[in-house]
Design a binder for these strands. Structure first.
Lengths: 196, 196
DNA sequence: GTCTATACGAAGATAGAC
DNA sequence: GTCTATCTTCGTATAGAC
């Protein structure tokens, strides 16, 4: 996919800026003005880089977010369900800590505000399903029955997503800590059940 | 607070419409135009009814949402933690079913997009804390230790909030069903633990 | 309480020069 | 690839008549 020669910098920086800005101010709340001034990219090339406009930018933001998340996980290489959980929590924690609990998930912002078409929703859903499935696979490998493993994967993804919103409203990371503690307890209990 | 004589209808209808529209299109994504045309309220009286503008409208939306939720719970009058859980889930389920999984929590939309001041966040956070505390109190009454009861209250609120986002992206209520099942299991386990 | 008119800025998007 | 200029629509908010 990447061209052989000196690659396009502006477009990549715009995507990175949009990811940050969507996290903090939402999708509707972030204009091209903001993306340009935050990234330092040239004003005149927006529709050169994103011919389909803001929708295309949002698609790239979701893609980038997924790529960043995958890189985060591959960096930690968790080998058991509990380690996967804490790797997921760590991802959410960094989002909150980097912003003083003033930013959240850019993908969630797009889902809550976009009305462009089904593609953005499908991309968002695919990412969250992959997260849930990643944890569920580990749980199954630890002996947890299929349906419970799947349900716990979904519970984990949903509660982390919700924790981002609750922490933001409270301006406090406490709710994420609480969610982490309870998920840890619940996952361990499911694994113990499976062993007995 | 309520005047003795024939009360103001327009303002109340505007708040109700704003609640619906925030749920579906977000806070930035909903303009006064939309609120006016949806509610049928007169154009000229917006700043008569909401002198502080959109921020004041958002405050009233959060208040209305809390009032509706309290009415929903008081209607069901749950007397044990599991009943409280299912009453909470039912509230989320109605939001999704009424919209074909295309709308979510209006308060979350405000939290993700507003940048007006701390009041909106404090109101949102107070509502979610009350939800979590309501469940936690029931768990404590069933013998669950204080810290676990509190953590499970937070987990429940966060995971329901997250389920709204995940279901919306998937255009499917399945994730909420899964979250309900797992929370039911987890809460029952905590209660059983307490009895032994 | 409701109206019209309007101010002022920003939104997303396009055209055409360079 | 980047520029400027422009289009159209929309946003919140205000002023002042009725």
């Amino acid at each position: 996919m990447t061209p052989p020669t000196g690659e396009n910098d502006s477009r990549e920086r715009m995507i990175g800026s949009a990811l940050e800005l969507f996290s903090a101010h939402g999708y509707s709340g972030t204009g091209f003005r903001d993306v340009i001034s935050h990234s330092g990219a040239p004003r005149g090339s927006i529709y050169h880089h994103f011919p389909r406009g803001k929708t295309e930018l949002a698609e790239e933001v979701i893609r980038r977010n997924s790529a960043n998340f995958v890189a985060h996980i591959e960096n930690l290489r968790p080998t058991d369900p509990i380690a996967v959980l804490h790797a997921y929590v760590e991802w959410s924690r960094r989002l909150l800590e980097a912003s003083g609990c003033r930013a959240g998930c850019a993908v969630a912002a797009v889902v809550l505000e976009a009305h462009d078409g089904p593609e953005l929703f499908e991309m968002a859903s695919a990412g969250w399903s992959a997260m849930a499935d990643g944890l569920a696979a580990m749980l199954r490998a630890s002996g947890v029955p299929r349906q419970r493993a799947s349900g716990l994967g979904t519970l984990t993804v949903a509660s982390l997503q919700g924790a981002l919103v609750v922490c933001r409203a409270a301006r406090d990371i406490g709710p994420l800590d609480a969610v982490e503690r309870e998920l840890d307890h619940t996952l361990r209990a499911a694994i113990d059940d499976a062993r007995s």
